[in-house]
Computed example of a mutant assay.
Amino acid sequence: MKAKKCFIAHCVLATFALFINTLGLCILRLSCMGSEPFTGLCYSVQERFGVSVALCMGTVNVILLLADFIAYRESLGFGTLAGLFITGSFSDFWLWITRTVLKLDFSFSGMEHFAFRLVLLAAGVGIAVVSCSFYLAAQVGMAPYDSVGYLVQKLTHGKIPFKRTRVVQDCVCVLGTFLVAAPQGTQWQIIGIGTIVMALGLGPVLTVLQEKIALPFYRNVDAIVNGENEG
């Protein structure tokens, strides 16, 4: 019973972390100083072909899911389903809130409103990275895209750590974003300082945040849940 309640708590917190994560990515997008690499790729597909962010994310994750099912089944779980079917919907929700409800479809260019955009950039990156660390540290499964680094780490017996693979796959997404968005002329609204920062630093920073903050947080949650059961 204790394990079940801990699992439910982790699932709820992982879902909330995904919700906050997509908010951070949306704020980052509004700054016009770059998007998180994978989300940016999906934004470019949406603008070029009219495909929703949810459908783009879902399609890529389903393809990667096959590799996880064959070689890394321990990464599968509630978090996998959430990453497949919820993250894209959360992203579409925040885009709808900002563009339709709040009318905040910014299209900055060059050095326009640079200080304000830096604030949006810092807020977006901070929220996205911290919330992602809590999502992964919940250990209830992860989205196939997030599992790629751990899969490579497992297959290479730790010789290629998660943080290095994450940098490579994010850089591939940046290249894909450029190729897809260039014909629309929106590549530099999607790709920017934030994209480069996250592509090169997301993997290493996530590793530190999980070890120092997120995992201890979940251990405290488990202790609280177990204490309530005992009481």
Score class of each variant (00 low, 15 high):
E36A: 09
V45M: 06
F93S: 09
E74H: 14
A67I: 14
G50S: 03
T39G: 10
S75A: 03
S31N: 04
I191Q: 00
F78K: 11
T98G: 09
L121N: 00
I224N: 07
N220T: 13
A71E: 07
T195Y: 04
G40H: 02
V62K: 10
K5C: 15
A182W: 14
I193A: 01
T80V: 04
R164M: 09
L215E: 15
P216R: 08
G176D: 10
A137C: 02
G110P: 02
L28Y: 00
I63N: 07
L209K: 04
G158R: 03
Y150E: 07
V12C: 06
Q184M: 12
V51R: 04
H113E: 11
V174Y: 11
T165R: 01
A123L: 06
Q189N: 14
V101I: 06
G79A: 09
N220F: 15
G88Y: 06
A123F: 08
P204M: 00
V152I: 08
A115R: 05
Q184P: 04
K163D: 08
G24Q: 08
A199W: 02
M1E: 09
A123E: 09
C11I: 13
N61M: 06
N61Q: 08
H10W: 12
H10I: 10
L18P: 14
S147A: 06
L30A: 07
L209E: 06
Q187F: 03
A128T: 05
G50M: 07
A137T: 07
A122G: 13
S133T: 03
R117H: 01
K4T: 14
A17F: 11
E74Q: 14
R73M: 00
R166K: 15
C26R: 09
V152R: 00
K212I: 09
L151M: 04
I97L: 12
G201W: 05
L104C: 12
I8F: 06
V180T: 15
A223F: 02
I196Q: 03
G194K: 04
P37I: 02
D105M: 07
Y218F: 02
V12P: 06
P144Q: 01
G88L: 04
L25T: 00
L202S: 06
L121H: 12
D68P: 02
L155S: 05
G79E: 11
L155R: 11
L102D: 03
I196A: 11
L66W: 07
K163P: 12
M33D: 02
T15A: 08
V60H: 05
I8N: 14
R117W: 01
G83W: 02
G77Y: 08
K4R: 15
M57A: 05
I193Q: 08
F49H: 13
L81F: 13
P161M: 03
L136H: 05
R219D: 13
G126E: 02
D222R: 05
A115Q: 04
